[in-house]
Nucleic acid binder design. Structure first.
Lengths: 354, 354
DNA sequence: TTGTATGCGTTATCAG
DNA sequence: CTGATAACGCATACAA
């Protein structure tokens, strides 16, 4: 049958209270008692009953999640869905998970993390969208001894309890391998088209580009010509400006056969290709935004690289809960698969929750 | 605060016992009581505390899993790992999950399902490897009112509580889309090489082939030439026989540029290509067997189509547990993603458990 | 430093 | 048909 605390108490010749103290290292106990209890636990193979523990628990565990506002950047909506699934699943447990959203501005991030610090949570999940401020936040959390999880963007130097996300170098290589396959003609070239907002954390996008380039050098394929086109989005200019610039660039570069967009904005390029009826170009981008999915299905995007964002959101809180509640060890880095999506398999992927 | 059974009992002016009877539809209750309690539940928004329920539960839920022996066919080892993860996670709950293995023979399957029926479980997960016998098993389970889950192979007519696995037609189409991309020269052709054991359930493999062929017709690409080569493995012949036959076939068919293996035995072909130094052929197969992974990494296989078998095993018991224990509804069909793996992204996939 | 008692929310039994 | 009550295994406050 199941081994309970009293069982090991009896075996060790002490009371249940003592066993509890030893298991949780609270209060003082005689060394003799500790010895005997530990041995009894070992021999009988005690495993705590999580449901009983939860029922008896007085205080609730508090987890705070600091995520960019999906109303502003659709990309984050999937992580939120995953977090909400986790919240739902943990409903019967004594955990309270708060989601704090922030806008893609440094000031907003700071406000949000101040708010989180005031909550005095037992654990934090956050997306380090701005490096400097993220560092300050991490320092504060370390000082207050609050374990935290980095979601989606990895900075080892922040030393989180664990990271959960994708390896951007690897993702870039995967994209490159597909491009290489699609490059039927060696005289044609590949364009790396990065479209970014000013001031935003960019390191993982750079890594995706570096990984992409590395693929060709590592595989001894220097003959492949790779151009780069960088567009910085400025709030003051409107979209049609960019469209014109990029269209003209394309028209003047007929050798381009493949376009690689290292972030989630491939749909912008696809839209231009579609509107101006530019054919014969293979487009590959990242993330399952609705627009990307739509244009993938329509055939204007050939591949999307994805990373199971819902799952990442879900597991960021589940793993943290496990670490805090069940107190089991966690892997320091949870690198999620680099998923390859095309017109044919997108249907079974979109909105999938595992 | 949390709404408990006593809270709704008070509100409805009855006792906790009555509320319990109404919630679980056990025993008889007056219509008046039922009305009032249901209304109170509605108004207060009662959600049962799963941990308390579990603690109080007297009887344990019994789930039996009928899976092909992985010692015989490596393919099934991942499902088993997933099932074991689920067992582990449910350790504190009053569930007992038994795994019954069977050999890839009809008689063994029958013995195993007899054993399962004798156990009188509350729910069953099984792989319908042999159709006729699977039908008998399903009939028996229906008669005894034991809900069951079909894992990996789908037969709608068995009418399971739900199916969990991959859509083989879709998987075939995904494979085809990759082949089409890799077919740089229209004069070359594709070979569908199926290697099967006698007497084994073959319908989902056929579907993978059909899906593959459909891709080309549906996309108006009849000019692509597709050959088929079928090898039936006979226990009495040894492996080198097949090797010779296939090698000769290949040597006599220089037009073949791509080989599609609709089951997990691509490594066999890859091995022949490697041994006889046959280059320039793109090979695509299914499933992350160790041999497949090895030859993918070595470059003898270009793509593997996978289906998160661990996850499928894991969720087959988790979802069944949810349906039986928490009594929530389940989707009838859980189609898992058609994952595309190549040399670059395999590292983050193999052995991944979500 | 240690033992004991009470309660967590639910199930299940038993007496009405 | 209904109400009261003893478990379930653990955490915690309090007593010793």
């Amino acid at each position: 049958m199941k081994v309970r605390i009293i069982d090991i108490a009896k075996k060790a010749g002490v009371s249940a209270g003592t066993v509890d103290r030893i298991i949780h290292q609270r209060g003082k106990c005689s060394l003799k008692a500790i010895e005997k209890v530990k041995q009894a636990i070992e021999e009988l193979g005690y495993e705590p009953d999580l449901t009983a523990r939860n029922l008896a628990l007085k205080k609730v565990l508090h987890i705070a999640c600091l995520i960019p506002d999906p109303a502003e950047t659709e990309y984050w909506s999937r992580q939120i869905v995953g977090i909400e699934k986790a919240i739902n699943e943990l409903a019967s447990f004594k955990v309270k998970v708060d989601v704090v959203l922030f806008s893609a501005r440094i000031s907003s991030f700071r406000e949000a993390y101040d708010k989180v610090l005031k909550m005095q949570p037992n654990g934090v999940v956050y997306v380090p969208l701005f490096f400097e401020e993220s560092k300050k936040f991490a320092d504060e959390l370390h000082q207050q001894n609050i374990p935290f999880v980095l979601l989606n963007i990895y900075h080892q130097e922040l030393n989180p309890l664990f990271f959960i996300g994708q390896d951007p170098i690897a993702a870039g290589k995967v994209a490159a391998s597909l491009c290489w396959m699609g490059l039927k003609d060696n005289k044609k070239s590949i364009l790396v088209a990065s479209i970014s907002k000013l001031h935003q954390e960019y390191s993982h996008i750079e890594s995706r580009i570096n990984g992409f380039l590395q693929f060709f050098t590592e595989n001894g394929l220097p003959e492949v010509q790779i151009d780069q086109f960088h567009l910085e989005i400025d709030e003051n200019r409107n979209d049609s400006d960019y469209e014109t610039v990029f269209r003209d660039y394309l028209i003047n570069s007929p050798q381009i056969r493949i376009i690689y967009v290292p972030n989630s904005r491939a749909y912008r390029i696809a839209y231009i290709l579609k509107k101006h009826k530019i054919n014969g170009i293979m487009l590959i981008g990242f993330d399952t935004l609705n627009n990307n999915i739509k244009l993938l299905k329509e055939g204007y995007i050939q591949f999307l690289i994805a990373q199971q964002s819902q799952n990442q959101g879900y597991h960021s809180v589940i793993f943290l809960f496990n670490a805090l509640f069940i107190k089991n060890d966690v892997k320091k880095e949870h690198f999620f698969p680099v998923d390859i999506l095309n017109k044919e398999n997108i249907e079974f992927y979109a909105g999938r929750m595992l």
